[in-house]
Design a binder for these strands. Structure first.
Lengths: 210, 210
DNA sequence: GTCTATACCACGATAGAC
DNA sequence: GTCTATCGTGGTATAGAC
């Protein structure tokens, strides 16, 4: 505990190649079946190895889930830090939202699973590093104010972004269309003026789907 | 099949008192642990009976999950029908959104679980009555148009509403505050003018949280 | 008709020996 | 890395008590 770094940096956690392979396979399966619906056997089969081989890389199933969560949070961590580096809280929020949209699109389907799986929710509540990071994320999302409306906006935004990207109604949207619409909508939700770039993006996107 | 009613009416499915007790207990547990994370044993324990007693009411676990989904959809069914009864599609959408907000608040936490659990998602894809109903719901939500923007709006709204109500940042909101904020936000997302009622609601709500 | 007692088999995570 | 074992628990099933 004496060597514990003051700031939790998920990005700094080292993984061997074998561990990374386990995490990749596990994430794919968990995204499809949920944590409880994914067994070590399934992970092993997907990797073409035995259960014992998986068990060698991570002592328990929970460790795998923790590692997956850490890896996913590491990506968001970069976004939060980029936002915190901005001087102005309003500008910070914009940067963060932009990055969150990027990531939600880039990892379409994955983000929401991690956000809604009951097992992962419990894990996040139990592991302090996760808790601390989430609070940091919320802080950046809230900016300076913390009233009813601000909190509602932050809640609505952070949930809507990660969920909308995997909605069946827009499953056929390409990344560019999605990003344009999401950017436009988040700005509207916050009552911010649309940027010229947004309008161009959303106009272009209109031709992207029949 | 000859006796199958033309319109699927989930509301018309009869349940005995014993079955209802099983569904109540199961829903609570599933909302907390997910479908895969909930065993017949847990359901039985929660009811203070044995596994066999549960098994007597529903032959399989899947039947329980189907029944739960039917029961929850029956509630939405009323909302969809009320919307369809409106002449104007725009007005229909407003009515539906209003009811969806009501239900998301009333059954806070339950709606989103059913919407995101991998097992239930698979079930919905496999059972045609569920599929048909969902399409009906989307149709009412889309109104007349079905372009990129309209679909995006429908997706964003239907996901955001059910998810936001259980977001930790606003877990302390009371029902009235939630409803006011949700109504206001959905109107803003659709670029509709705010109603006097909304403003009053959101003003009142401001005093509901410190 | 509803619940209990009990059993069955497959599979879950875990573990140590190879 | 694999093989094999352990041990609990999953869902399913039947027979019989109230």
């Amino acid at each position: 505990m004496t060597s514990a770094p003051s700031g939790t940096r998920f990005s700094a956690i080292p993984r061997t190649a074998a561990q990374t392979r386990v995490l990749d396979a596990a994430l794919r399966l968990i995204a499809e079946h949920g944590v409880s619906g994914t067994s070590l056997q399934m992970i092993a089969d997907a990797m073409g190895v035995t259960k014992a081989a998986v068990y060698r890389q991570f002592k328990t199933k929970e460790e795998i889930v923790v590692a997956i969560t850490e890896r996913e949070m590491a990506r968001l961590e970069d976004a939060v830090e980029a936002a915190e580096a901005e001087g102005h809280p309003l500008r910070a929020r914009e940067v963060l939202l932009d990055r969150m949209i990027d990531q939600a699109i880039e990892r379409r389907g994955v983000v929401s699973v991690l956000q809604f799986d009951p097992v992962i929710i419990r894990l996040q509540a139990e592991h302090e590093p996760f808790q601390r990071f989430i609070e940091r994320l919320y802080a950046a999302l809230l900016g300076t104010e913390a009233g009813v409306e601000a909190r509602f906006h932050a809640a609505m935004l952070s949930s809507a972004i990660s969920v909308a990207v995997m909605h069946p109604l827009i499953a056929d949207f390409d990344a560019a269309t999605l990003r344009a619409q999401l950017t436009k909508m988040t700005r509207r939700m916050l009552d911010l003026p649309e940027t010229a770039q947004d309008s161009a993006g959303s106009a272009k996107s209109r031709s992207a789907a029949p």
